[in-house]
Simulated assay, not measured.
Amino acid sequence: MCVGSCLGTSLITCLEMKIIGKLLLLVLSIGILYLGLSQINWSRIFEVDEKQEKLEKRLGKLVLDDLESSMSLIKNDSINRIVDSIFHPLLAKNGISRKGYKVLVLQDAQVNAFALPDKQIVLTTIINFLDSANYVSAILAHELAHCEKKHVMKSLITKFGLDLLLSGSGASNMTNFLTGQAFSRNLEREADEQAVVYLNKAKVNPHSLTHVMELFDVYLTGDLDLTWASTHPSPSDRKEYIEEKIGEIDLSMSFNSPIQQATWKRFKELVKAYDSEEDQD
């Protein structure tokens, strides 16, 4: 009786071991298969990245052309060089390639800044509204974050659908969306928080972004057309989570202005003189 019982128990144990062994082999096989598949560059195989890059370049040109049909680009080498000198430290200190990035200045009454497809960032007379190059750097850092995080294309695809974007129609609708409406609150917050990191690494005081929010909070109810503030979450809300983000990071040992004060003063004079010349024409 004992022998039969023991033999039965052994057979059950043997069967269980075989089942467990097969399960382990199956799990191992799945793991190896997953590891192998993860090493394959599926984006390259299906040319997803290349096609999206072509689409983004095409949309970038369409939107910029539409923008220029109603507003005037400032074509002044001195002004553009100073804008680049404010922007480039954000790229260099954060390990971001300059390739493809352009900052454009539009002569427009709206106090605004926005990102377009194909790594294009646009500033309007928001320059005249601000008191420091640090503040311009803070706004550029926010728009840079939108570009680096692919927020522009994500939002366009969500809003208009891929079919419409591929057709290339509705450029004016895309322009109005990018210049006059905010991204989702989550994307705006992500851009603000990333801007804090960019500023800190570029040795520009990240509290500059907070100060911009304070300025907008004061003037938002005034007569100025603060499009950049009115189409974003409220400045007071943004100020709160920006300060939280600043508190989470190790701040740089020293902060500097991206350009000298004399250059900033000259910059504002150049923009003001350009506006006056264009108005006379």
Rank of each mutant, 00 (worst) to 15 (best):
Phe160Asn: 00
Phe160Val: 09
Gly161Ser: 08
Leu162Gly: 03
Leu162Pro: 01
Leu162Phe: 13
Leu164Ser: 14
Leu164Asn: 03
Leu164Glu: 11
Leu165His: 01
Leu165Tyr: 06
Leu165Val: 05
Ser167Gln: 07
Gly168Thr: 10
Gly168Gln: 09
Ser169His: 09
Ser169Asn: 10
Ala171Trp: 06
Ser172Arg: 14
Ser172Met: 07
Asn173Thr: 08
Asn173Glu: 14
Met174Thr: 04
Phe177Asp: 03
Leu178Arg: 11
Thr179Asp: 02
Thr179Gly: 06
Gln181Met: 10
Gln181Ser: 15
Gln181Val: 05
Ala182His: 10
Ser184His: 09
Ser184Val: 10
Arg185Phe: 06
Arg185Gln: 10
Arg185Pro: 02
Arg185His: 11
Asn186Gln: 11
Asn186Ala: 13
Leu187Tyr: 08
Glu188Leu: 11
Glu188His: 07
Glu188Val: 09
Glu190Ile: 07
Glu190Asp: 14
Glu190Gly: 11
Glu190Tyr: 03
Asp192Gln: 09
Gln194Phe: 05
Ala195Lys: 03
Ala195Asn: 05
Val197Ala: 02
Val197Trp: 02
Tyr198Glu: 08
Tyr198Ala: 10
Tyr198Pro: 02
Leu199Met: 03
Leu199Val: 02
Asn200Ala: 12
Lys201Ser: 08
Lys203Ser: 13
Val204Tyr: 05
Val204Arg: 01
Asn205Tyr: 04
Asn205Phe: 05
His207Pro: 00
His207Leu: 10
Leu209Thr: 01
Leu209Gly: 01
Leu209Lys: 00
Leu209Asn: 00
Leu209His: 00
His211Ile: 10
Val212Lys: 00
Met213Ser: 11
Glu214Asn: 07
Leu215Glu: 09
Phe216Thr: 02
Asp217Cys: 09
Asp217Glu: 14
Leu220Thr: 06
Leu220Pro: 00
Leu220Cys: 06
Thr221Asp: 13
Thr221Ala: 12
Gly222Leu: 06
Gly222Lys: 12
Leu224Cys: 01
Leu224Pro: 00
Leu224Lys: 13
Asp225Ala: 14
Leu226Ser: 03
Leu226Ala: 11
Leu226Trp: 03
Leu226Lys: 02
Thr227Cys: 02
Trp228Ala: 15
Ala229Pro: 01
Ala229Cys: 10
Ser230Cys: 02
His232Leu: 11
Ser234Gly: 04
Ser234Cys: 01
Ser234Ile: 05
Asp237Lys: 14
Asp237Arg: 13
Asp237Ile: 10
Asp237His: 11
Asp237Gly: 06
Arg238Ile: 07
Glu240Asp: 13
Tyr241Gln: 09
Ile242Gln: 03
Glu243Ser: 12
Lys245Ile: 04
Lys245Leu: 05
Ile246Lys: 00
Ile246Ser: 01
Gly247Arg: 15
Gly247Leu: 08
Glu248Gln: 14
Ile249Met: 05
Ile249Asn: 08
Leu251Thr: 07
Met253Lys: 13
Met253Thr: 11
Ser254Arg: 14
Phe255Asn: 03
Phe255Ser: 10
Asn256Lys: 13
Asn256Arg: 12
Asn256Gln: 12
Asn256Glu: 14
Asn256Pro: 00
Ser257Gly: 03
Ser257Leu: 11
Ser257Met: 06
Pro258Phe: 06
Gln260Pro: 00
Gln260Phe: 05
Gln261Ala: 14
Ala262Lys: 14
Thr263Gly: 00
Thr263Pro: 00
Arg266Gly: 15
Arg266Tyr: 03
Arg266Pro: 00
Lys268Gln: 15
